[in-house]
């Protein structure tokens, strides 16, 4: 399995009424940002993507050295004060509410990330390990059980189906540096979620990219055994293993069962 890069995000910006001030380290394969709505969870992901104009200089420090152009030197993006266009950041992203391309079929949606990268500039030596664009697409379709929906348009999908297509599209990004998932299981029932979670963990590990997801679902965070960052009002309250950070919630849930 490829060596996992470590990331550190620094963010200091005022977005609307919210003052975001964080410095967080991604040290686990899967990190969950947990917090109530309005705490700035989605804004953090959007800022990492370069979509928050108020926070153009999100510092992302990666210990991994670049493959790009000869390798050796760290990527430009690794410099904390560089503003890089979203499409050059090499991110996999499933936004909140499954934003699909309405004019494309399910298959075309999932193929989009590899289709826009077609060209020599994006071919990297690690292609042998993670597969070509076409294999990535097939793998993502299998992972999210979308075989029966490939010819459909987003307009004909249910909420949960759209969400699965959005996740599959994120997992079909070639060479992601970081996989960002915003409320990944909205509209997906528990049984399916429980089936998808381990597959997604496995797939992310194969792709060699850490996952940063956002949720307000305690179960999801506990199931993943992920590193949890508890966020409130744009600030980090706590960070650590899910079992510790969410101990209180876990106890409350157990109590309800007894």
């Amino acid at each position: 399995m490829p060596q996992l890069p470590r990331f550190r995000l620094r963010l200091n910006a005022r977005v609307g009424a919210l003052l975001l001030d964080l410095d967080l380290a991604l040290i686990s394969r899967w990190t969950v940002i947990f917090g109530p709505s309005g705490s700035g969870k989605s804004t953090i992901l959007r800022a990492v993507c370069g979509l928050v104009p108020q926070a153009p200089r999100v510092g992302i420090l990666s210990r991994r050295l670049a493959h790009r152009k000869g390798g050796g030197a760290p990527e430009e993006w690794d410099q904390p004060h560089h503003r890089m266009a979203p499409h050059l950041r090499g991110l996999a992203y499933a936004p909140q509410g499954a934003v699909l391309f309405p004019h494309m079929s399910v298959r075309e949606n999932i193929s989009f990330p590899s289709a826009v990268r077609r060209g020599a500039a994006f071919q990297q030596p690690s292609d042998r390990q993670t597969g070509s664009g076409a294999e990535l697409v097939e793998e993502a379709i299998r992972c999210f059980q979308l075989e029966a929906l490939l010819g459909r348009r987003p307009g004909d999908l249910s909420g949960g189906e759209s969400q699965r297509v959005s996740l599959a599209r994120a997992f079909a990004v070639p060479h992601p540096r970081l996989i960002l998932l915003d409320e990944p299981f909205t509209g997906i029932d528990r049984a399916l979620r429980d089936a998808l979670l381990p597959r997604m963990q496995q797939r992310a590990a194969q792709l060699g990219a850490p996952v940063l997801s956002v949720t307000h679902d305690v179960e999801e965070a506990l199931m993943l055994g992920a590193e949890v960052i508890r966020l409130e009002q744009g600030r980090i309250l706590d960070q650590g293993p899910a079992s510790r950070v969410l101990a209180e919630e876990r106890a409350r849930m157990l109590q309800m069962l007894l």
Binding site: G50, A85, V99, A170
Partner: peptide, 12 residues
């Protein structure tokens, strides 16, 4: 958001 997600997924 449609345009934004296209950008993040690698489209210039």
């Amino acid at each position: 958001p449609t345009v934004e997600v296209a950008q993040v997924l690698g489209a210039g």
